[in-house]
Design a binder for these strands. Sequence first.
RNA 1: GCCCCCGUAGCUCAGUGGAUAGAGCAGAAGUUUCCUAAACUUUUGGUCGGAGGUUCGAUUCCUCUCGGGGGUACCA
Length: 542
Amino acid sequence: MKEYLYTAFKNAEKIIPELAEISISFDVPKILEHGDLSSNAAMLLSKKLKKNPRVIAQEIIDALSLDSAVIQKTEIAGPGFINFFFTPRATAEILKDIFKQVDNFGRSTKYSGKKANIEFVSANPTGPLTVGHGRNAIIGDTIANLLEAIGYRVDREYYFNNAGRQMRVLGDSVRLRYLELLGNKNDFPADYYQGEYIKDIAKSLFNEFGDKLKDEDAEGLFKEVAEREIFKDIKKTLDNLGVHHNIFFNENSLYEEGKIAALLESFKEKNLSYEKDGAVWLKLSELGQEEDKVIVKNTGEPTYRLPDIAYHIEKIKRGYDLLIDLFGSDHNATYPDVMAGIRALGYDSSKVKVLIHQFVTIVQGGEVVKMSTRKANFITLDELTEEVGKDVVRYFFNMRNISSHMVFDLELAKKQSDENPVFYLQYAHARISSIMREVKRESLEPSLNNLHLLTTNHEQNLLKVLHNFNEKLLYSAENFEAHLLCNYLEELAAAYHRFHRFCRILGSEKNLAEARLALAVATKIVLKNGLTILGVSAPEKM
RNA sequence: GCCCCCGUAGCUCAGUGGAUAGAGCAGAAGUUUCCUAAACUUUUGGUCGGAGGUUCGAUUCCUCUCGGGGGUACCA
C-alpha cells in the first residue's frame, strides 16, 4: 500500500516541485478513524511555502491523481495530516503475496551477499551458565536469525579463554575437592569455586583414577578435565535453547600463533606504548580515551585489552560486512579502549557494532538474588529451561528491549507461565491449525478468488496488520531489536483472536468461508515465520 | 568525580518528533447448543521522576536535576 502512495507522490512532484525537497513518509495512524496511512507532508512544507498546512494538504491531494479502486477516500485532519483510506479490496491483495511466498514471506534480500558475525555468550568455562547468560544467549541467537532473515550470511561465534588466573583457580578448586575425597582436610579458600559441580568433577576423577592424582598439580589434568566437562555442559545448555555457535574461538590461539607478540610489537613501533612500573601501557590518552591503560602487567601477563584488540583485528581481517559484539552492561567500559586500539593500527572499526544489554535482576520470594559464579549463588539456565521450557525462556528474553533492566520473577515465570504472552501467540497458531483440520470435512479450500468479501472491521484490521510484517521485520533486524518483532506478533495474534471470535469460517457461505480461510492461513504463515525467527515453536495443537 | 543504561497505570513492560500515551497481569462486570474460553467484550486506573530549552508539534531530541542499576582494575 505504501508503494502505491510513494509512486503517487513521486508523480505529483510535477505539479508541486517542493515535494521533492522533503522526505516523504507514511505512518500507520494509531486510531482507526484516521485511516490506513497518513502523511505529514503538508506540515513539512508549510514553512517552505509559507501557507497554512491544511491548504497545502488540499493542493497535494489534488495533485496526486489517485485510483478510486485503490484509495476509497482521503481527508485532511488535525493540523494538516492527509489521511488515506484504502478500499477493502486493495487491502486484501496482501494475501496473494503471502500465499506466493509462504515461508519466505517477510524475508528480504536487502543484505544478500553480505556477511555478518555475531559474538555472544563467550563465558569462560568456569561454571554452568546462569540466567544472566541466558539473556545474552537468546538475544544473540535471535539477532543472528533476524540478520539471516534480511539476507545476511551469519557466523555465530563464541570467544573463550582457558588460560589465565580464573582457570588456574578452577583447576585448583577441583584439585582440593579431589584431595578431600582422599581424606585430606584442607581449608577450601573462600575465593575458590564453591559450586557442587566442582565436587562432581572431582568425584569422577576419583572414580577413574583413585588416588593416583594426589601429586598432580592444578594446571594439568584437573584443569583440563574441569574445562572439558564444563564446556560440555555449557554446549548442552545452549543446545536445550536452540542456540548453536558455528565458531569457537580460543583466546590461546592468539598467543600460539604469535598474534599477541606481533600486536605488542606494532604498538611499540608506532610509539603507542611505553613501559612504566614494570608494566606496558597503551597510550590511550592520545587516542581519544580518558587515560592510559596497562596492556601487559608487571607479571608479564597481558590484560584482556591486548588479546581483545588482537581478536577484533582477526575478525576484521576475515572480511565481514558487519561485526557484532554482544555484552552485558558490566563490560560497557571495556570496548571503547579496544575500538581505539583497533583504529590506532589503521583498521576500520566502523563495521563493529557493540550491543550492550542490561542485567537481569532475579527476584525470588520477593527478594533480589545476587548472582555469582564463584560463590555458587546462582540459578542455572538449565534449571530455568527445565522449569518453564525453551519457548518461554526464549520469548521472555526476546520480548524486552535489551537496554531495559529486566526483572525476572522466578515464581511468576514458573507459576504463571500460562499467562506468558508466548502462549497467546502459539494459541492463535494452534487455533488456525485446528480450523485447517476441521475444514477438510466440509471440503473447503482457502481461496483468493473472492477477497472482496473480507469487508468487516475484524477482517480488514487483520489484513492491515499482515501488511506491516515486512516492514516491522526489516526494522527489527536493522536495529537489532527483537522485541519489536514480539510486539508485532502480539498485535497480530490479538487481531486474529478477534477475527476468530467474530468471523466464523464453518457455517458461512462457501465463497466467504474460503476467503476467510485464506485470511486465517495467511495469518498462520506469518505467525510461524515470526516465531521461527524468535526460535519459538509454532504448535499445531495445544 | 567521570562514563553507560533505566525511570511511563497497583505490578511487568511497549511506545520509529506527530493527532485522544498503549499492552499483559492484577481489580470490576459480562460472553460458550457455535472452527480449542490458553479466547473475546465492557470497565477502573497516568502530574510519561522533576525543571528548563529546541520545534508548527516532545514520552521521544538537548541541558540541568533527583532516584535506581552497572562501570570507572596491573579481573574479564
